[in-house]
């Protein structure tokens, strides 16, 4: 931090909002486009930092209870559908690729490709949510939602399995809500891209949304092994 060069983006004589051709609007309190873009990018990263800690609290709870009740977690985890989980992981990774390609298309100024990749991302994201909804429904049918009617048929240490499902729903629910918010933002971005709002010189919203989308993907990359892949061999607890 100490060695970082001081901001020297000072351009004299700029007051009020002003537009550079192709750069979108530079808001009045910034000296230059570069400063504005830099600020937005740092802002997004700092936001993702808060998101990391937000999910971090739940991961904390997960690790504590898994440490205490390995058998309950192992047997409750077998109730999740490995194939659907792996399929959904694949879908989400595909959507991350299309999002990365969308950013790439934006940076090379290919408008139609950008729109196409954003739509692909939206479709894949919705597919993920669809599968997730199916899984939730399945849990509902089998009374595996913690609460008064909760039961865990054939589970080892069944008294403690509700903690697993509480965390399962808490974590995947929080993750899904981030996906849903992302899908709505995607709709807006698709519309704006189609209208030609972005150019190779200015596509900051696409880039920042890409960061958000990849972050949500990373959360799932951890949720998949932690929730679906405990002791699939079925030969005992983790300890």
């Amino acid at each position: 931090m100490a060695n970082e060069p001081a901001v020297a983006l000072h351009e004299a004589g700029h007051t009020g909002a002003h537009a550079h051709p192709g750069y979108g609007e530079v808001r009045h309190h910034f000296e230059s486009y570069a400063q504005q873009k830099d600020a937005s990018t740092i802002g997004m990263w700092v936001f993702l930092l808060t998101e990391l800690m937000f999910f971090g609290g739940m991961f904390m709870a997960y690790f504590v209870y898994r440490q205490w009740y390995p058998d309950a977690f192992a047997s409750a985890s077998l109730k999740t559908n490995l194939w659907l989980g792996a399929f959904n992981t694949t879908v989400l990774i595909c959507s991350s690729l299309t999002m990365a390609m969308a950013v790439h298309s934006a940076s090379t100024g290919k408008r139609l490709l950008l729109v196409g990749f954003l739509i692909a991302t939206l479709v894949l994201g919705s597919a993920f949510l669809g599968v997730k909804a199916y899984e939730y429904h399945d849990k509902w049918v089998h009374h595996e939602i913690p609460g008064e009617h909760y039961e865990c048929e054939g589970c080892v240490d069944a008294g403690h399995t509700s903690l697993f499902f509480a965390l399962y729903f808490g974590m995947t629910g929080l993750h899904a809500s981030h996906m849903i918010i992302g899908a709505f933002i995607l709709l807006v971005l698709i519309w704006q891209s189609y209208k030609g709002k972005f150019s190779a010189k200015w596509y900051t919203p696409i880039e920042l949304f890409g960061l958000y989308w990849h972050f949500v993907d990373i959360v799932w990359i951890f949720l998949f092994p932690l929730l679906y892949l405990i002791d699939r061999s079925g030969k005992g607890g983790i300890h």
């Binding site: 092994p225 002791d231 061999s233």
Partner: peptide, 20 residues
């Protein structure tokens, strides 16, 4: 993704979680 799904079906004892 598929490697980790596959490895989870093999019993590695306490190592499973570390590999995953």
């Amino acid at each position: 993704t598929w490697v980790t799904a596959w490895i989870s079906t093999i019993d590695l004892g306490p190592l499973n979680i570390y590999v995953a």
